[in-house]
Design a protein around this nucleic acid. Structure first.
Lengths: 156, 156
DNA sequence: GGTGAAAAGTTAGCTTT
DNA sequence: AAAGCTAACTTTTCACC
C-alpha cells in the first residue's frame, strides 16, 4: 500500500470510470481511455496491486433491503481514559447496524452513522447508545430527512 | 425500483457476497451460495433489474489519490426560505470536494462530508462555506482523527 | 503500448425437478 | 416456478512483438 503512486491523466480517467462503474468491462474501459485492452488491463492491475483501488463493492438500494433511513449521532464520552475508549469502540464494532464510526476533533468525540429499519429500530438504537454503550455522557442525533448529494467517488 | 422485492436466504447470501466483493465472478459466487452458475446469474440479474442492487463501484484509497483526510461540518442557514435552500444546495452540488450533503432534523440543518488534500485545502473549504455559500449562519466542523469503522454494506 | 490466441467467465436455450 | 445442463459467445489474460 504505497501512498505515493504517480498517476497520469490516463490513470485518472480509468479511476473516474471505475468509481462510477466498478464492473465496466475492460474492453469498454480501454476504449473510453483510448488504450488497447491489454495496456488498459495492465494499468488497472497496477492500480489494484499498489492499493490505489482498494476494492470493488455492490451498493444496494437501502429501501429495497428494508432500511427506511439513516441517522448521524454525535456522542460525548464521560471519561476519556484508554479503557473507556477501548470498551466503547468494541461495543460499536459489535453492533452491525452502526455503519460508520469516527473519532473526531472538536468539542465532540464520536460521530456514528446508523441505518434503521423503522421508528422502533431507531428508538432501540438510541436506548442502546445511551444505556448500553459504556461511558456515554451526551448524544445528539441528526436524522437524515433529505439527501442533497451522496458520493463514494473522489474528484481526480 | 420496486421497494418491496421479497428476498429469500439465498438472495441475502448473494447480496452479502457482492457487498463485500462487487467483482466476484459469477461462478465463484454460485459456488458460495450453493447454486449452479446459471441459476445464480438469474438471481443476480433479477436483483439488479429490480433495483435492489443499485450499482457497482470501485472504492479508492483516499491517501493514494492525495486526500489527507475527511471532515464533517454542520451548517445552520440564516433564513430557511425556499430560495435560500435552493441557492445553498446548488452551491453544494457545484463543489466537487463536497462528497455528501444531507438535510437533517434537529436544531441543525445541513451535514456535509468533505475530503481535503492538505491543511490549506481544508482552510479554503472553511472560507468557502462561511463566505461563499449563501445564508450560512453558523458552522461547526469535525475533523476525522481516526476511523473506528467504515462500511458501505448493510447487514442482511 | 499493441497483437493475437488460449483460458476463463458469461449467457441463453432446453431439460428436469 | 425455479434449478441444472450444455454449448455458443464474450471477456480476460498473457506471451510475444
Amino acid at each position: 500500500m504505497n501512498d505515493d503512486v504517480q498517476l497520469d491523466a490516463i490513470d485518472r480517467s480509468i479511476l473516474n470510470e471505475l468509481q462510477r462503474d466498478g464492473r465496466l468491462p475492460n474492453q469498454d474501459l480501454a476504449q473510453r481511455v483510448h488504450l488497447s485492452p491489454s495496456a488498459c488491463l495492465r494499468r488497472v492491475k497496477r492500480l489494484e496491486e499498489s492499493g490505489v483501488i482498494d476494492r470493488y463493492v455492490a451498493l444496494l438500494n437501502p429501501k429495497a433491503v428494508g432500511k427506511q433511513g439513516t441517522s448521524y449521532t454525535i456522542i460525548n464520552l464521560e471519561r476519556m481514559t484508554t479503557a473507556a475508549l477501548a470498551a466503547f469502540e468494541e461495543a460499536v464494532l459489535a453492533s452491525p447496524d452502526i455503519l460508520d464510526c469516527f473519532y473526531v476533533a472538536g468539542s465532540n468525540d464520536y460521530l456514528i452513522r446508523f441505518a434503521y429499519k423503522d421508528a422502533e429500530d431507531l428508538e432501540r438504537f438510541h436506548t442502546y447508545v445511551l444505556m448500553q454503550l459504556p461511558e456515554v455522557a451526551r448524544s445528539n442525533s441528526m436524522l437524515v430527512l433529505r439527501t442533497i448529494k451522496r458520493s463514494t467517488a473522489f474528484e481526480l
